[in-house]
Amino acid sequence: MEFTTFLFYLFAAVMLFSALRVITARNPVHAVLFLVLAFFNAAGLWLLLQAEFLAIALIMVYVGAVMVLFLFVVMMLDINIERLRHGFWEHLPLGATIGAIMVVEMATVLTGKYFGLSNFPAHVLPVGESNTKALARILFTDYVYPFELASVILLVAIIAAVMLTLRQRKDTKGMRPSDQVAVKRSDRLRIVAMASESESPATDSKGGAPL
């Protein structure tokens, strides 16, 4: 067995196990962490397929940013596990139907030779060219308009999300950093000229021992 084959089975096994634990773990935080592990192993599988840019982007975007915020939210929620398990049998038929549809769809893709997928041959990289470079070249030449369009749509989505959650409250207390930076010494500090006072010699007011 080649080493990469061994790695494939290792990544696949860990990924299946952690995906199973995502839905069976009792503690939601554990479930999220198993999802992170599943993402990590998916990235490993993509690396074996020599799609290193996608693999690293998966770790950077999903593991490094999205799942951190997700974990953050799940940690703050007060989840009642007993109540979550309550409607399991009621919702099982709907869930099973959706699962079955997904299995059929995946099988359709994987058995692609019956549907003519082999008419689209795999892109073969020239020797010595990295996957990242090839992807970038295609994205910024052949597909530059779809790419720019996607980024504009994402920008609109960002602005929309900000506008939906933005509340202008009158009673919010905030500070203006520019005002804080612009403060001069004369605004805060006043130097008063006064005659020097001479303390009476070293006894306190009650006439006791020297201080």
Partner: peptide, 25 residues
Amino acid sequence: NIDAGVLYLLAIGSIGVYGIIIAGW
């Protein structure tokens, strides 16, 4: 000596935060 070295640094660097979050929780 990998070609995606910078991406590797960014990706692995971004999972360092898990240690802190998991420890805190």
